[in-house]
């Protein structure tokens, strides 16, 4: 494995806390890209704001570190302008689904060939542990000191309903599955969403008494199960992992090529 071929080594060690799940996503993403053998100059990584978005700076691709929540809007411009580029958009849960929620559902609706990776650690880490739209009812956060009464989104259901044509979920514990899913998501011709459950031991773990990074990964192992497993039938509370949606619909940039053809023919 030549992980170092894909990173900007001078910025390491990275800025994330010890045991941060985002590092595992970085790790898995590099392996996925390496296995696919994509030229680094053919990849544009567009990120927003938050702990998650710093992933772009560490990778030796064309990298665009943008505004909070807006990464998919910037990425849409990049992709439509130059469809031959592989566009990957790593996002945090707040970034993707609170401030960026509108861009998220509309990118999914358009089915533009972008790979969105939602690094879901259920918290705003960069600003010190405020609750996010994925923190969940009953959790604790610096802005939910008496427990959070906000219900959370289900990323998979939201993305599927919005029209994403590839939707999957994995965790920082299930690294092989995560890497394989990211690979498939990049190859998928359409809007793909990969939710990776990522641990934030510093804010979410500590405040919600989930222990350290190791404990949090063990917990992810315990509360998740492959899609359609027997375990799920017995315990409906379990969170399913795997590929939920894999379908073909006209991809936006290809569809726009038809518009160009019609315009040129005068129809």
């Amino acid at each position: 494995m030549a992980v170092k071929d894909y990173i900007r080594e001078r910025f390491f060690p990275h800025m994330w806390c010890a045991g941060c799940g985002h590092g595992i996503v970085l790790n898995g993403l590099i392996r996925a890209v390496e296995k696919l053998g994509i030229d680094k100059s053919a990849i544009v990584m567009v990120s927003g704001i938050g702990c998650s978005s710093r992933i772009a700076g560490y990778l030796d691709f064309h990298t665009l570190h943008t505004l909070h929540g807006r990464a998919l809007a910037f990425a849409t411009g990049v992709k439509l302008s130059k469809p031959e580029l592989n566009v990957i958009v790593p996002m945090g849960d707040g970034d993707a689904l609170a401030i960026g929620g509108n861009h998220f559902i509309h990118a999914a609706r358009r089915n533009i060939n972008i790979t969105a990776i939602v690094m879901n650690n259920r918290i705003y880490g960069m600003t010190g542990g405020q609750c996010s739209p994925l923190s969940g009812y009953g959790t604790l956060a610096s802005t939910a000191p008496y427990t959070n009464v906000d219900q959370s989104f289900d990323v998979v259901q939201l993305a599927s309903a919005a029209g994403a044509t590839f939707v999957a979920r994995s965790t920082g514990f299930h690294v092989q599955q995560m890497t394989e899913i990211i690979q498939e998501a990049i190859l998928h011709n359409g809007f793909s969403v990969v939710e990776v459950m990522s641990q934030c031991p510093t804010y979410f773990g500590r405040r919600n008494r989930q222990g350290d990074a190791v404990d949090m990964l063990k917990y992810m192992q315990k509360i998740t199960t492959p899609i359609g497993s027997k375990a799920k039938e017995q315990n409906p509370e379990l969170i399913e992992r795997g590929v939920f949606v894999r379908k073909e619909l006209p991809e936006y940039c290809s569809a726009y090529d038809t518009v160009i053809r019609r315009a040129k023919e005068g129809k």
């Binding site: 943008t66 809007a73 990425a75 849409t76 411009g77 992709k79 439509l80 861009h103 509309h106 160009i260």
Partner: peptide
């Protein structure tokens, strides 16, 4: 625009429109 091979996109709001043109500009357009 499509008549000359250019691209037009109606975004979900003005925020996204502004972001999209910045992304496209970086590809050289």
């Amino acid at each position: 625009l499509p008549k000359i091979g250019g691209k037009f996109i109606q975004m979900e709001d003005e925020i996204a429109s502004m972001c999209a043109i910045i992304g496209a500009s970086l590809t050289g357009r």
